[in-house]
Design a protein around this nucleic acid. Structure first.
Length: 442
DNA sequence: TTGCAGTCAATATC
DNA sequence: GATATTGACTGCAA
């Protein structure tokens, strides 16, 4: 009961009594010790190679063919895989939007930052892994056990190999570009398709229903995250007076109606990852009110698309009566506008991958973001905080392969990532350097 | 039951 | 080799 209460009605750190802080301190200690399957190194007790995850044990390739950077840092410090670290850096969410679980990696990072020998330890870890890899490679060569990924479908339990029984892996589904386009078009018309529509889409595209469901889940989720970033970035730009960038407009077209929006009181203190509180969110200013039309227009299906609908029976009016009782209304796109299931066979004339995506689609927004503005440059640089040791950021940057200077490589994505990381580090360092911890808002 | 957040891990790309 | 992308999955909440 106390846990439930604590989680559902969290108090700011500053408002907590010593006793009230205890559970969080315990949580930090616990996070610093062991969590889940992965055994994290306890600070000051690192010795020998650390078991990073169960899967890394399952797959000899993972163990042997080690790399570094995101993988090492993620698995050793954050308890995440490389892909998750990459995702986290590229698309960080505002702190207040993170769940407790989502904050875990940042808490771990803070703890790591608190460790005066953090970088050295990581480097040691890296060296040890390299050594272990070389050793394994050497022994595997002599044992004629190549460091190769096992072919999919080989059942080792039946072979002479003494390797533990390995599950047959399901081959990964890779959607063809046409299939993705078709799904995107379907999404534009109906971000929350009914089971029937999903069924029909699956049949049309010759995909499993679960694949279509997953695709919609993932797409919604990733679009939402993109929009969070844009809101933040638009916010930092908005401080300078520009608030109606295309991406900012698109950002408001979607999740703002979700109920989980950044509008309202909560968003008033949208916190930019760098720790600077961005008092950006107007409570529905003119620019916001005027936001939607462009998106709607773009999302609306051209007349050509409406033609030759093979799934004419799947028009929303017919199939989506069952959508009416959905827990939430579609938060984005013209879902309120009846639209047929798109022609999945062929894109509309003149439409390509870029143009078919609405402003809510990551690609389109990505293109918008990649403008000359280089918003990431507006984010605080790690070199800024005077409280933090200068060593860490540069070490981190080298760990992640990020340029020391934002413009070291003329790659907007890279710059953006560097800025995101800098912001996170800045924030964490600020927190770490305070006697009074930052309000983590657990 | 549905949607979401968070994550993994295979694969693609740089 | 490092990093990015993305389909699939888990756990949770409404």
């Amino acid at each position: 009961g106390s846990v439930s209460d604590m989680l559902s009605r969290p108090k700011p750190w500053s408002k907590l009594t010593q006793k009230g802080r205890e559970p969080f301190i315990r949580m930090q200690l616990w996070l610093n010790g062991e969590l889940g399957q992965g055994v994290l190194p306890v600070q000051g007790q690192q010795q020998g190679p650390v078991l990073h995850s169960v899967t890394s044990l399952q797959d000899p390739l993972q163990q042997g063919c080690v790399s570094s950077g995101q993988r090492l840092f993620g698995e050793t410090i954050l308890g995440l895989t490389q892909g998750s670290v990459s995702d986290l850096l590229a698309r960080p969410k505002p702190w207040h939007k993170l769940s407790l679980k989502g904050r875990e990696p940042f808490v771990r990072m803070q703890l790591w930052l608190n460790d005066p020998n953090n970088v050295e330890k990581l480097m040691d870890m890296k060296r040890m892994e390299k050594k272990a890899y070389m050793k394994r490679r050497h022994s595997s060569v002599s044992d004629t056990q190549p460091c190769e990924p096992p072919s999919v479908g080989i059942d080792y339990s039946q072979g002479a190999s003494p390797q533990p029984q390995q599950q047959l892996k399901k081959p990964r589904v890779v959607l063809a570009p046409e299939e993705k386009e078709a799904l995107k078009r379907a999404y534009q018309q109906k971000p929350y398709p009914s089971p029937k529509t999903i069924e029909e889409l699956a049949t049309q595209l010759n995909l499993k229903t679960s694949t279509v469901i997953n695709w919609f889940h993932n797409y919604r989720s990733r679009i939402r995250r993109e929009l969070f970033i844009e809101e933040i970035q638009a916010g930092s730009q908005g401080q300078a007076g520009a608030s109606d960038s295309p991406s900012a407009r698109s950002g408001r077209a979607a999740p703002s109606s979700e109920g989980d929006s950044c509008d309202g009181v909560e968003a008033a203190d949208v916190e930019e990852p760098g720790g600077t509180t961005v008092a950006t969110k107007s409570q529905g200013g003119p620019a916001e009110v005027a936001a939607a039309p462009a998106d709607r227009e773009e999302a609306a299906q051209p007349a050509e698309k409406a033609k030759a609908q093979p799934l004419s029976s799947a028009t929303p009016g017919q199939d989506d009566g069952d959508d009416a009782g959905r827990p939430r209304p579609p938060p984005e796109g013209p879902a309120d506008t009846p639209a047929p299931v798109p022609n999945l066979a062929a894109p509309a004339p003149g439409e390509d991958a870029a143009t078919s995506a609405t402003a809510t689609a990551p690609e389109a927004r990505g293109a918008a973001r990649a403008g000359p503005a280089e918003r990431s440059s507006a984010l605080p640089s790690t070199s800024a905080p005077a409280t933090a040791p200068a060593r860490r950021p540069s070490s981190l940057q080298s760990l992640f392969g990020l340029p020391e200077a934002a413009g070291a490589r003329d790659n907007p994505v890279r710059k953006k990532k560097a800025a995101n990381l800098n912001s996170i580090i800045h924030r964490l360092e600020k927190a770490a350097s305070r006697e009074e911890p930052i309000e983590w808002e657990f």
